[in-house]
Simulated assay, not measured.
Amino acid sequence: MTIRHTCAEDLGVTLLDPAGKAYPLKYSGGSPCTAWSGARTFSVPGASSPAGGKWQLRATDYGPGDIGVLDAWSLTL
């Protein structure tokens, strides 16, 4: 995924499989704030869902007063 955000520690990122099961990729929290600018790759060990169907990515900003943009994401199964 490619994100531009002023504070990576504010972000929580979760992958949702076609059945709705959540796979946390990144938890929010920590300090100090560091910028996230560019691509990062995550692995989901133990994912047991069928590959077919609609997968979703949920990126949540838990911090106030800053901004960010999800530029792109892709999924390789």
Rank of each mutant, 00 (worst) to 15 (best):
S49H: 03
W36V: 00
S37C: 06
P45Y: 05
W55C: 14
K54D: 15
A59M: 08
P45K: 06
T34K: 01
C33L: 02
P32R: 00
W55D: 13
F42S: 10
L57K: 11
I67W: 10
C33V: 00
T41Y: 07
A47Q: 07
P50C: 11
D61M: 02
G53K: 07
S43L: 13
T34Y: 00
G65Y: 00
W73H: 08
Q56C: 12
A72H: 10
R58A: 12
G46N: 10
T34V: 08
K54A: 15
W36S: 01
P32A: 00
S48Y: 04
Q56M: 14
S43C: 11
F42C: 09
Y62V: 03
S37E: 13
S74V: 02
Y62Q: 08
R58N: 07
S43V: 10
C33G: 02
L70D: 05
D61K: 02
W73S: 09
G68Y: 05
G46D: 08
G63R: 03
S43K: 06
G46S: 09
S48A: 15
S49K: 02
T60D: 12
G53W: 06
K54W: 12
S43G: 15
I67N: 15
A72I: 01
G53L: 12
Y62N: 14
G38R: 03
S48C: 04
P45C: 13
G53P: 09
P45N: 10
A72D: 13
T34D: 01
F42K: 06
V44T: 06
